[in-house]
Design a protein around this nucleic acid. Structure first.
Lengths: 143, 143
DNA sequence: GTTCGTGCAAATCTTTTGCAGTTTC
DNA sequence: GAAACTGCAAAAGATTTGCACGAAC
């Protein structure tokens, strides 16, 4: 039994080809895909996979804490396999989302000082916006 | 001529009752409302105001840099009058969004160190999630 | 065999668009 | 009066739901 199969079972879900495919895709493609992206990419190998199932599968994974929803894209939800704490950069040109491993220690110190202004803070996410190095390179005529 | 009228004119827009109403609402109610919220609140005083006009008005204000869109709510867009740089706390219980005035200086120092991992960073927003003091108080039986 | 998962079609929710009529400058 | 604005109805895009059939345990 593979690790992927185990992690589905361990979270109280039945193991199905669809779930294996979605989870494997997320593990192997750290591109913070939308549901639509997951679906269109997997259609090649699983022609009968429905978009509805992708949505339901992703929702289930989120519910079980296996993946996270990213509120970084104004129009669509993006999904990210849970790994070490990290943040995200959203390119305004190509629309891709990149991981940023960013030391939040000082931020957290400040947060403690302002004490969340009295609210109970459960999570902090830092979202960067701009132009990614690939798009910037192209517009500068470097690539 | 009021300040509100001036700021609409100065941004190259025509002054209409609808725009005055929307802008006044945003200035007087720092609640980061959705378009729907703006519309439903203004209906009391402007019964013929359409939701479409609210959307178009908000889009225009964003285009002119008078307000900002907040990507903090997964389902709907929220709008915020532009003031000093600040961040937001999103309560997972009541769904309200609160301003957080949070010293990002140390964050920015770190950002310079990691240099945006090679990307050109134009803006950084810090989003807090949790339970606000009002909801927390209620569940604790304090209020 | 029971429970859970899948996928179709239809519904829902937010936001956008086309267009005819109206208002602003 | 020309250009911009409003609001209706319809469309669009993302996501959810109801339900019958099928697969997993």
């Amino acid at each position: 039994m593979t690790e992927i199969q185990k992690s589905i079972l361990n979270n109280g879900m039945k193991v199905t080809p669809q779930r294996l495919a979605v989870l494997k895709f997320l593990k192997n493609n750290r591109i913070h895909p939308t549901a639509e992206k997951v679906h269109s990419e997997l259609l090649k190998d699983y022609p009968s996979l429905s978009l509805t199932t992708v949505y339901k599968t992703l929702a289930k994974f989120v519910e079980e804490g296996m993946i996270k929803e990213l509120d970084i894209d104004p129009n669509k939800m993006r999904f990210d396999i849970c790994v070490d704490d990290h943040d995200h950069f959203h390119c305004q040109v190509c629309d891709n989302v990149y991981d940023i491993f960013y030391d939040k220690k000082n931020c957290d110190d400040n947060l403690q000082k302002c004490n969340g202004e009295g609210h109970r803070v459960d999570s902090v996410s830092v979202n960067f916006k701009g132009v990614c190095k690939y798009c910037e390179g192209m517009s500068a005529g470097v690539l």
